[in-house]
Design a protein around this nucleic acid. Structure first.
Lengths: 342, 342
DNA sequence: GTGAAAGCGCTAACAG
DNA sequence: CTGTTAGCGCTTTCAC
C-alpha cells in the first residue's frame, strides 16, 4: 500500500503508456480516439488498483472550471437558511458539483470577503443570500463572468437573477386575515430593515392596513433575531395603547416575542393574537400553535439551481429576461394563534 | 475596465517587473527579500487597480495545500447539525480556511462519495460526522495523510480523534432525574440505532434503570426523525401498560412524540412527563417547556477545530494520544415537563 | 491507435 | 534588491 498519491503519471509509468492515453481513458473519451479495448481495460484496472483520484486543482487550473458552486448565506443557525442550504446541497451534488459554503453571520464585511475568496477559487457559479447593502463585490463577479443568482434576498436594480418568496404578498394576505378577524391594532415586528424581504413584508403590512382604512399601528425591531423580538415586545406592551395582535416577520422574532409575552403573563390568543413568517416545524408544538406564512423553500432552491446551471452550461451573455426575476407566492398555514375580536 | 482576469503576470508586465518580485510582495514577504518600499507600493497599487485576486487552483497545485477544510455532515435540516456547521464555519474562516460542505442526508453512500470528492480536492483536513457504519473510505484518508476529526458521532476502534458530548453521561443523569421524580415506567425513544450517540444514550438509560433496580421499560424508534417519534409514541400509548414518562433522544423525535400525545389528548406533564436531548431554542416555548440535555455545541466545534488545525500545522505523525478522544459532559436544562409522581 | 509537448497561474530554489 | 527557471497534475493541440 503506497503512501504516495497516485497521479496519471504513476499509472502511465506502471503500465508503460503515455499520459495522454491514460488521461483519455480516464475521461471516458477512449472510443473517440479509438483506443483499444485492451488498453482501456489495463488503464482502468491500474487506476482502480492504485486508488487513483484525479487532482481537482490541476483540472481546475487547466480547464478553468472548478465544478464547484459557492454558497453565501447570512446565518446557518437560522433554520430557514439551513433548509435552503440543505436542499441546494442535495440537488447540486446530484449534478456533480461541490458546494463551498460561507456563513456571513449577517455581516457585510464577511460577505465581501466570502465573495472574493470564492472568486479566487474560480467558482463555476454562486448562489448568494446577501447580508448587506453593498453590491460592488457582486458586480465584480460579472467581470469574471461568474454566474450568480440570489435567493430570498435580492436587489431589484441589479442585473442578477433572483428567486424568492413573494414577501409582499405574504405579508399583505396575513395582515388582511388579521383585519378580517377584527384586529386594528396590529404591531409589526420587523427584521433587518435594509434587506428586501423585510422591506417587502413591511410594505405588505402597511398596504393591507391602509387598504382597509387603517393607519399602520406600529413598526419596530431591527433584526431577524430572538433578541429583537423579545425587546421590542417588552417595549410594545408598555405602551399606553396596546396592540391586539402582533405580526412577527420571522420565527426567530416570534420566539423572542412569545418569551416576552409569557413573562408578562399575556396568553395567546386570549390576550393577544400573533402571526409569523417562515413556518418552522416547531410552530405546531408551541403553547399556542402559530399561524404562519409558509415559504416554498424547496421550490425556491430548485428553481434557483436550475437558473444557475443553465447559465453555467450555456454561458449565455444574453440580457436578463423577464423569467429571471422569480417571485413565488407563499401559502398561509392557519393555526390557532389568531382570535376573532369584535 | 478589462474583462480578462488579472494574474501575477499581468501585474508584472504592466509595471515591468518580474513575476517573482510581484509574487513576493503579494505574499507579504517583501521585507524578507529586502524589496524596496517603492517597488512594493507600485505592485500593491497595480494589484489593487486591476482587482487582482490570486488563483487558488494554481496555489493549491503548487503548494499542495488547499486552505480548505471538508465538512461532512448527516443532515443540515437538523438544527443541531446546522449549529455545529455554523460555529465551525465561523472559526475556520477566521483562520483563513474555506469550508467545503456536504450534507449526506444520513446516507452512507453519499458519505463515501463526499469523502472521495473532498479527497480529490486536496482538503487540508476534514471534519466528519459519519452517517454510516463504514470506515474504509475514512481509513483511505490516512494514506493521503489528510487529518480528520470526528464530531458528535465516532468510532471507538479507529485511530481518528473525536470530540463529542458524553452522551452516556447525559442519558444516565436525565434518566436518574426522572427516577428521582418517582417515574419507573420510562419509555426511551431512540434515533438511528447504529450511531454512537444513540448507542451511548440508550446505554445510559439502561444503566440508570438497572442501577436503581428497574428493568428498562421500553426502547423503540429507528431514527432521529419527527416521524419516528410520532409513530413510536402512537404505538407506545396503545400498549396495555402505558409509560409515565418518555425520554426522547433528540428534539426532532420529541416534536413527533408531542404531536402524537396532543392528538390523543394527553397533557404534559399532567398525564405524562417528557424529557429530550439537544436543547433547541424553541423548547422554552412549547406548550409545556421541555427539560433537556444540552449539548455543548460551541465547545465541541471549537475543540475539534483546534485539534484539526494542530494536526494540519504540525503534521505530527505521532500516535493518537489520550487527549484526542474527548468527551464533554452535557448540562441538563430543567424546565417544567417532568412531574413528580408518588 | 498512440504520444510529445505546451501551458494553465503560481511559488521557490538558485543565481546574481 | 531583483530575476530565471523548473515544475505542481492535468488536458489538448498537433504530429505520426
Amino acid at each position: 500500500m503506497q503512501l504516495e498519491t497516485a497521479t496519471i503519471k504513476t499509472i502511465a509509468d506502471t503500465i508503460g503508456l503515455s499520459l495522454t492515453t491514460v488521461s483519455r481513458v480516464l475521461n471516458g473519451v477512449a472510443k473517440k480516439y479509438r483506443i483499444s479495448k485492451a488498453t482501456e481495460e489495463r488503464v482502468l484496472a491500474e487506476a482502480d488498483r492504485l486508488g487513483y483520484i484525479p487532482n481537482q486543482a490541476a483540472r481546475n487550473l487547466r480547464l478553468k472550471k472548478s465544478f464547484a458552486i459557492g454558497l453565501v448565506i447570512p446565518n446557518l443557525a437560522n433554520p430557514f437558511f439551513a433548509n435552503i442550504v440543505s436542499v441546494v446541497n442535495q440537488v447540486l451534488h446530484e449534478r456533480g458539483y461541490s458546494v463551498i459554503l460561507t456563513d456571513c453571520n449577517e455581516e457585510e464585511k464577511l460577505e465581501i470577503e466570502a465573495v472574493n475568496a470564492l472568486s479566487a477559487r474560480n467558482m463555476d457559479g454562486m448562489i448568494v443570500i446577501p447580508s448587506g447593502r453593498g453590491k460592488k463585490h457582486l458586480e465584480l463577479l460579472r467581470q469574471k463572468r461568474t454566474p450568480v443568482v440570489f435567493i430570498d434576498r435580492y436587489f431589484e436594480d441589479l442585473a442578477i437573477p433572483y428567486v424568492a418568496t413573494n414577501h409582499y404578498d405574504g405579508a399583505l394576505k396575513i395582515t388582511e386575515y388579521l383585519i378580517a378577524n377584527g384586529h386594528r391594532k396590529i404591531a409589526c415586528l420587523q427584521g433587518s430593515n435594509h434587506v428586501m424581504p423585510n422591506i417587502k413584508r413591511v410594505q405588505g403590512y402597511i398596504d393591507a392596513m391602509k387598504g382597509h382604512g387603517h393607519d399602520p399601528f406600529y413598526i419596530g425591531g431591527n433584526g431577524f433575531t430572538f433578541e429583537s423580538g423579545y425587546l421590542e415586545t417588552k417595549l410594545l406592551m408598555q405602551r399606553s395603547e396596546r396592540p391586539t395582535a402582533i405580526l412577527a416577520l420571522s420565527d426567530t422574532i416570534l420566539l423572542g416575542s412569545l418569551k416576552a409575552l409569557a413573562e408578562d403573563g399575556y396568553r395567546v390568543p386570549e390576550d393577544i393574537s400573533i402571526a409569523t413568517f417562515d413556518n418552522s416545524v416547531y410552530l405546531d408544538f408551541l403553547a399556542c400553535p402559530v399561524t404562519s406564512v409558509s415559504q416554498p423553500v424547496t421550490d425556491i432552491a430548485t428553481i434557483a439551481i436550475k437558473l444557475l446551471l443553465d447559465k453555467i452550461e450555456q454561458q449565455s451573455t444574453s440580457g436578463l429576461t423577464e423569467q429571471e426575476k422569480i417571485l413565488i407566492s407563499p401559502a398561509i398555514i392557519y393555526r390557532s394563534s389568531i382570535a376573532s375580536i369584535p
